[in-house]
Write a protein that binds this DNA or RNA. Structure first.
Lengths: 253, 253
DNA sequence: GCATAACCGCGTACAACGTACCCAGTTGGA
DNA sequence: TCCAACTGGGTACGTTGTACGCGGTTATGC
């Protein structure tokens, strides 16, 4: 009954404060779990492993967190806190959204396991909430709330999609157990076979382009981002664009 | 050695053809796994459960598939085959991309568990390859290959992002073990507390809007998609837009 | 025609997982 | 001072992916 009351992690108090003082803390456990996930992937962050990391017994974690799923929620919200959105409705919406985009992408690349946590239901942790307030505050003065939602969703989709692609194509060799060069050698023969078959002309062009990219990953991201921002600009009133005209090319930074 | 040769599922032959005739098949196993995942989520599609579904012993599956991870790859590629891209470079790129977008979104909503399979490395199954050829063929005549990649990535990100949001906000209550109404009642109290606190004005506006949406999910998707297509249009040469002018409003269909 | 190698389905077994349950020790409020 | 409410954590259970090996089946070389 009292347990069922707190289906939501964010409503459950960390410690009811009656018995002996707890030795550990949610923050400490979350930190250890993030550390392990960063180094070895999310599936390596088992309850036993996390407990060992902080020198506790496996079952002790359940004094602080109701389940592993809930701990992952905590981890995800902790990551949201890494994105710097201080002073975010600054007046220059392009600068704000660019800073946010860079921050979110960088966070994904630092913690690629975030791609594997599916929010089965929206989870509004404190960091997530703060992010929503600041980020959506940027366009709030220009457009209606549903227009804002639509635009921010498009921006977020672009960033996450780009990050997902970077993660899957460049990193995350943990799962396969192969080193990067090993995998390259293996998959090369398969891709080579596809190319040589002549049945996939466009795929072949993609492979050739990928072998000799003339844009760095950062630049590719920036290029696509500028396109998305230009797209957002068309949905804003003309008064919004004053600090930095849409058609003039600003420097990259 | 001979096993290590086939790290890639698509290079491993289904059956070496020497011993007795196999009773089952990869396609049959994949089909059963998809059926279970659709009904009860991907984590319910265990090897034992899949085997039981087709009336086989658990270990028999390993005669056809090297590991569960590889089976999931097979499942994902099977899903790609559901998207109708026949005769796709039709000349009307807007119509083509709209059809693709609707198809991909519908597929995601039919198989929400696809959101939980992370391609740790790009997996080019036959259906995936065919999709790439047809889809990227649409813009191939207008732009360079890297521009095409950038545009298609943006489109895909939008579709997947929108689908992810629909899945997490509307469906997928399997994991929590709660019914929809139960969960609504629980989370309502949390959201209500956030709203009443007055600390989150924009979040509050979002909640109010969500309670009384004035656009259906389909329309929301279409609205955002049109914006993305308009954005793509600006990157295309003016000759591309002939069949359907950008500034004239076509009917929804 | 027949031995044999290469396959088949699948039962058993094992390590690793999340976590229910329990117990001894600790502590703040009465 | 006592006891309820906590603490850390050991043991144990059900479930998972899958390594291994068995007895039966079949295409192939002689």
């Amino acid at each position: 009954m009292t347990d069922a009351e707190y289906v939501n992690i964010w409503m459950r108090p960390e410690r009811p404060a009656r018995g002996p003082k707890p030795v550990y803390s949610r923050a400490q456990i979350t930190e250890a779990a993030v550390r392990i996930a960063d180094a070895e992937g999310l599936e390596a962050a088992t309850m036993r492993r996390i407990a060992a990391e902080i020198g506790a017994g496996a079952m002790s974690l359940y004094r602080y967190v109701p389940s592993r799923d809930n701990l992952v929620e905590l981890m995800a919200d902790r990551l949201m806190g890494e994105i710097d959105v201080t002073g975010m409705p600054s007046g220059d919406w392009r600068a704000d959204l660019t800073q946010y985009a860079d921050g979110l992408r960088a966070m994904w690349l630092r913690h690629p396991w975030i791609a594997t946590v599916q929010r089965s239901l929206p989870s509004f942790g404190p960091n997530q909430l703060l992010l929503i307030e600041r980020l959506m505050g940027v366009l709030d003065v220009f457009v209606s709330i549903d227009e804002n939602l639509s635009l921010v969703a498009m921006l977020n989709s672009y960033i996450e999609g780009a990050a997902r692609e970077e993660i899957s194509s460049a990193g995350e060799f943990r799962r396969s157990g192969l080193s990067e060069s090993e995998w390259m050698a293996r998959s090369y023969s398969y891709i080579d076979r596809l190319v040589k078959s002549g049945e996939y002309p466009i795929f072949t062009k993609i492979v050739m382009e990928a072998r000799q990219p003339h844009l760095s990953r950062d630049d590719q991201f920036r290029y696509g981002l500028r396109r998305v921002l230009d797209c957002i600009a068309t949905a804003l009133p003309s008064t919004a664009e004053s600090p930095r005209p849409a058609h003039r090319e600003g420097q990259a930074r």
